[in-house]
């Protein structure tokens, strides 16, 4: 009996998961449609870009610098044992550009911005602000959702580029801890190992990271139910689902890159 109940619960949860997945995809389709159907809310879009960028800049700066520094310090002895010290800047840069900066930046972004969007829209939903907007002739999907999704889609790649630069700086400091090296030589060694396919797929996937974070967070917030408790749940599930989406997109991006390159 207990086993049957467990099976039923599992089935219910699985059914709920797929129902919500389908609904999120439909929501994403509506976001895209509203984004391209004018007029676009440029003022709100610029405001969101500014707020989102500013909100995460400090955290991403610190994380990216430490990321570059620690990665360099930990990799250096291994390469030194193999007599491949000169490859250190290049290897660090490939790792940072291809994987570490995009994923870590997106995860930080999901935690900071995704939860904020989930909570903000959730609170607007439970206090009837979204309905109020709708009945006063303003399309909330266009004003609240499309602007936020477009802002996250564009801001994640920009922040990832920024994180690449700061991680590079951290890595340079890490290399210098083991012995002085000129910045010119360091840059040259880093670029020697890089080619454009290290940058292009990694950049493309960051747009998808940003889009997924925006859509999932907005979806969770926009469809909040259950009062203030629901707002907390929306903020929390926005982060969890966005983080999961980041890893799934990353996995798909790696597979696709392997196929095409």
């Amino acid at each position: 009996m207990a086993k049957q109940n467990t099976n039923n619960r599992f089935e219910d949860r699985l059914q709920q998961f797929f129902w919500e997945l389908g609904d999120t995809v439909r929501f994403a389709g509506r976001v895209i449609r509203e984004t391209f159907r004018g007029p676009f809310e440029w003022g709100e879009f610029y405001r969101q870009c500014y707020v989102i960028g500013l909100k995460t800049l400090g955290l991403i700066s610190i994380t990216a610098f430490i990321m570059g520094l620690v990665l360099t310090i930990q990799t250096r002895p291994v390469l030194a044992d193999l007599g491949a010290d000169a490859w250190l800047p290049g290897i660090i840069m490939v790792a940072v550009l291809r994987e570490i900066a995009p994923v870590i930046t997106a995860l930080i972004f999901a935690g900071k911005v995704g939860s904020g969007i989930g909570a903000e829209l959730g609170s607007m939903r439970v206090t009837d602000q979204i309905d109020a907007m709708e009945v006063s002739g303003t399309n909330p999907m266009k004003f609240l959702v499309s602007t936020r999704v477009l802002a996250t889609t564009l801001m994640v790649p920009i922040l990832v580029f920024y994180a690449d630069g700061v991680a590079f700086l951290g890595s340079y400091v890490g290399v210098n801890l083991g012995g002085p090296i000129s910045i010119k030589l360091y840059v040259q060694q880093a670029l020697d190992l890089l080619w454009y396919f290290d940058i292009i797929p990694a950049t493309i996937k960051t747009f998808f990271f940003g889009f997924a974070i925006g859509v999932i967070s907005c979806y969770k917030g926009y469809n909040t139910t259950g009062g203030t408790q629901g707002v907390g749940v929306a903020a929390n599930t926005a982060v969890v689902a966005s983080s999961l989406a980041i890893f799934i997109i990353d996995l798909l991006a790696v597979q696709l890159t392997e196929i095409f390159i």
Binding site: S123, M124, T127, D128, Q129, D131, A132, M133, E134, V135, S136, G137, T138, N139
Partner: peptide, 23 residues
């Protein structure tokens, strides 16, 4: 349609229970 509905909605005011002010 959505656009026509928005037009009508501007002619119909709605006061929510808690005011629903944009906070």
């Amino acid at each position: 349609k959505d656009d026509e509905l928005n037009q009508i909605r501007t002619r119909v005011g709605y006061l929510f229970q808690e005011g629903a002010l944009y906070d």
